[in-house]
Structures are given as structure tokens and as C-alpha cells.
């Protein structure tokens, strides 16, 4: 029998913490961090005007797009579907957060990693759908490039998550469960090897999946004028921006919790735990931003060979070791 309290807790978890609102806020703060850091690396100031050291700039940008800018529509543009798909992507991410120990309402079951991965795929589906619901040649080329990229990168993400959970929740009551892998990891030397390999593969694949330089091939401002996002405006663009940065925040958070041990060496009950998580999160983000600032865009075939060489191979090796261990 499900109590009213549980339902309320679930709703609050999905909508506020660590779900929708939390993800959007963390996502936009992540955007601020990346913009500021890239700005400094490029001899610019970066966001500055709104809020202390420009912290509120991304929020101001999104709010402006939502309430001030108009939505431009044209024939052949599937407006409603666009919004629905992006909302679904955002919702799926928020729901996936319930699998982590950050959530007061915990979801765990044996083999729940499958559901987790399924939920993660929704953002990609949303972005691919953007390309298909607009009749602009730039968007079409952009979405075909995204699909190519995803075709190679998604298996990497799936393989590395499965390999890690396989190792970490080996002897637990709920095998292959995200929650028990994070909260109660079983680690030996071989397991450590698997995790390091998976982390490398996962980390790079996140950059591919979230279209960060040098993998911003589907967006490619100077080639495709924004590609996927070329025809978005007003609230829809705001939604796309929120979805994009929430995805980056979500995936980096998962990397922090699953591969880097969350608050380790502290535990989840410790009041300094969130600080440790934040520091690890920022370190990952710093590396991503550093790569982003020091690389040019590569060609799609260069990207796919890079993914196969450095990501797919590594993650498959990790999976083989994990299954043998």
C-alpha cells in the first residue's frame, strides 16, 4: 500500500530535488561555470553583469528567451511536438535522478540500470527529433550528424555504465542496480581497473553526446549556423538550452557519483559530503571546459574513428574484464 507521504515524496523528488528544478538550476550554474572559464581562457571576461560575478546571467538569458522573445514559427515546423519531446527529455532526466542516493525518494531494483539507461536516451531522442521536425537544410544536416555521432557514442555510455555497475554491485541483493552501486560499492583491484577504463570512455562519450567541442559537429556554428538549433527561438530555444545544460549536469553528476565515489572518502550521511561531491563535479567540469577551449572542431569521420579508437574499444575492454572478474 502506497502512502500519501510516499506519493508526495516522489512528486517532490521528481519536481524539485533532485529532479527538475534542481537539475535546471545546476545545469544553468554549470553553463555559467563553463562560460566564465572559457572566457578567462580566451582572454575575455565572461558573464559579468547579472548577479554576483555574473552568476545569474544564464538564468537571465533563459528568462528573457521565455518571456520577452517571440517564438517564430513557419510552415512545416512541428511546434507542439518539439516542445513535447524536449519536455519528455527533461522529465526523463529528472526521473533518472531518483536512482541516485541524492534523492529522498529512492528507486532501486535488481537490473534497474536498464531503466536508467532508457531514461537517459530520451534527451538524445529529443535532440534528434528537433532536426526531424524542422524543414531547414541546416537542421537536417545537423540532425543527421548528431545521429551518426550518437550511433557511436551511446554504446560507449551504455557499456561503461553496465561494466561499472556489474563490478560495483556484484554481491549485493540488487545486482546491476545504480543505487546499490553508488551507495554500497564493492571494490577490488580488478574493479578499480574497470572503473578507471569506464570513466575515461564515459567521460569522453559525454562530450560527444552533449556536443561539446571538439564534438560540436551537429551544431557547427560557422558551418551549419547552429545546425540543430538553427530554427529554434523564444521559449523553445530556452527549453533546448535548459535541456542541453541539464544533460551535461546530469551526466557529469553521474560520473561523479558512480565512477568517482560521490562523497568518498566521506560518506553520504556526512554534512561535508555535498561539498566533496561539488568539488569532484567541478574538477570534471574544469577538464571538459579545458578540452573545449583548447580544441577546434573535427570532421564527422575523424570523430567517429576517434570514438571507436579511444572510447568504444576501452569501454568494451572494461566490460570484458568486468564480466570475467
Amino acid at each position: 500500500m502506497v502512502s500519501l507521504y510516499e506519493i508526495l515524496l516522489a512528486v517532490v523528488s521528481v519536481l524539485i530535488y533532485p529532479g527538475l528544478i534542481f537539475l535546471i538550476v545546476v545545469g544553468l550554474l554549470t553553463q555559467w561555470f563553463m562560460r566564465k572559464l572559457v572566457g578567462r581562457l580566451q582572454n575575455r571576461i565572461g558573464p559579468k553583469y547579472v548577479g554576483p560575478i555574473g552568476l545569474a546571467q544564464p538564468f537571465a538569458d533563459v528568462l528573457k528567451l521565455m518571456f520577452v522573445k517571440e517564438e517564430l514559427s513557419f510552415r512545416g515546423r512541428l511546434d507542439k511536438f518539439l516542445a513535447i519531446f524536449m519536455a519528455l527529455g527533461l522529465g526523463a532526466l529528472a526521473t533518472a535522478m531518483l536512482f541516485t542516493p541524492l534523492s529522498p525518494y529512492v528507486v532501486k531494483a535488481p537490473y534497474d540500470v536498464i531503466i536508467f539507461i532508457y531514461l537517459m536516451l530520451w534527451t538524445t531522442a529529443a535532440f534528434s527529433f528537433i532536426g526531424l521536425s524542422l524543414s531547414n537544410p541546416f537542421t537536417i544536416v545537423g540532425s543527421s550528424r548528431l545521429l551518426t555521432q550518437i550511433l557511436f557514442a551511446e554504446p560507449v555510455i551504455v557499456t561503461s555504465i553496465i561494466a561499472t555497475t556489474l563490478v560495483l554491485s556484484r554481491n549485493s541483493e540488487t545486482p546491476l542496480s545504480i543505487y546499490s552501486s553508488i551507495i554500497n560499492p564493492k571494490l577490488d583491484v580488478l574493479g578499480l581497473v574497470v572503473i578507471v577504463l569506464s570513466l575515461i570512455a564515459f567521460f569522453l562519450a559525454v562530450m560527444v553526446k552533449t556536443m561539446i567541442k571538439p564534438f560540436d559537429i551537429p551544431e557547427a556554428e560557422t558551418e551549419l549556423a547552429g545546425g540543430l538549433l538553427a530554427e529554434l527561438s523564444g521559449p523553445t530555444l530556452a527549453l533546448a538550452i535548459m535541456l542541453h545544460y541539464s544533460e551535461i549536469a546530469f551526466l557529469t553528476l553521474i560520473a561523479t557519483l558512480l565512477f568517482l565515489g560521490g562523497p568518498y572518502p566521506l560518506s553520504y550521511g556526512d554534512y561535508l559530503g555535498p561539498l566533496v561531491i561539488a568539488v569532484k563535479y567541478l574538477i570534471l567540469l574544469f577538464i571538459i571546459t579545458l578540452i573545449r577551449a583548447s580544441a577546434g572542431r573535427i570532421r564527422i569521420e575523424q570523430a567517429s574513428s576517434m570514438i571507436i579508437k579511444y572510447m568504444l574499444t576501452v569501454s568494451v575492454v572494461a566490460l570484458i574484464i568486468a564480466s570475467l572478474a
Binding site: Q42, N43, P214
Partner: peptide
């Protein structure tokens, strides 16, 4: 040229 290649850091520094 750096900007066209997506290498914006090069772009900013060349102009600096």
C-alpha cells in the same frame, strides 16, 4: 580561420 575551425581560443588570442 580559427573561428571557422571552431577554435575560438585561437580567434580571441589572434585578435588580442
Amino acid at each position: 580561420a580559427c573561428h571557422v575551425l571552431g577554435f575560438d581560443t585561437g580567434f580571441m588570442h589572434a585578435w588580442r
